[in-house]
């Protein structure tokens, strides 16, 4: 099943002065359960592409379809709601809410979705257990290591039962052990729950684990390789 489709997507910055073509005619289809790494040198358009896929930015031209919904046709408010219900985010610098505990951070998205308390608590505990943090549920991010924080971020991204998870350089701030642990968890979730992961990364370890690697250069897809 197709979860994400990009049709001739362009993103041009400073259109009226000196135009910069950050993404230049990208066509892409991602199926459910894929484990995709988007790679490329700095300035190749990885982050811009991810922002558009995540609905944080709108393409200058082209169409982004997620689960049969044309993202770029949604209003800002609807896009926000769409993000909440369909896309999970994992950021490079964890970006947890520092005043909430691990449990509360995971639960927060579900509360925004209006899920009942019992369901929220059950799923939060399941997710924190899945990322190996069942003993840290009441710890605030400041008391957790980088790796642990990123695992909470993964649990949070999964909490809303999204169609896919977008991870922007998720291992960039982690030591090798933490990065390996995180990747193992993601692989497990991908394998067991058929969760689709789309990474942008420079990290060879992530690329090695990916099933599909899309290489960008100058805003265009240079290579799209299926590795496994």
């Amino acid at each position: 099943m197709i979860v994400l489709q990009l049709i001739d997507v362009h993103k041009v910055f400073d259109e009226k002065t000196i135009p910069v073509y950050a993404v230049n005619g990208v066509n892409l289809t991602i199926e459910e359960g894929e484990f995709v790494a988007i790679v490329g040198p700095s300035g190749s358009g990885k982050t811009t592409l991810l922002n558009m896929i995540g609905g944080l930015d709108k393409p200058s031209k082209g169409t982004i379809v997620i689960n049969n919904v044309k993202m770029n046709e949604l209003s800002s408010r609807k896009r926000t709601d769409f993000r909440m219900n369909h896309i999970g985010f994992v950021f490079q610098s964890y970006n947890l809410i520092p005043v909430l505990s691990a449990k509360e951070n995971v639960e927060f998205i579900m509360q925004l979705q209006g899920k009942p308390l019992a369901e929220r608590e059950k799923r939060t505990l399941e997710l924190l257990k899945a990322v190996g943090l069942e003993d840290k549920i009441n710890q605030r991010p400041g008391k957790l290591s980088g790796g642990q924080q990123q695992r909470v971020a993964v649990a949070r991204a999964l909490a809303s039962k999204p169609d896919f998870i977008l991870a922007d350089e998720p291992t960039a701030n982690l030591d090798s052990v933490s990065a390996e642990n995180l990747l193992a968890i993601m692989e497990k979730l991908n394998h067991e729950e058929k969760m689709t992961f789309i990474f942008s990364t420079h990290d060879a370890r992530v690329v090695k684990k990916a099933h599909r690697v899309i290489t960008l250069k100058d805003g265009k897809i240079l290579k799209d390789e299926i590795l496994q």
Binding site: R77, T80, M84, F91, Q113, R156, S160
Partner: peptide
């Protein structure tokens, strides 16, 4: 700013 951006990204509306 970053935290607020994250909250908006994960679905907290204006």
């Amino acid at each position: 700013t970053r935290e607020l951006g994250m909250l908006m990204a994960v679905g907290m509306n204006q």
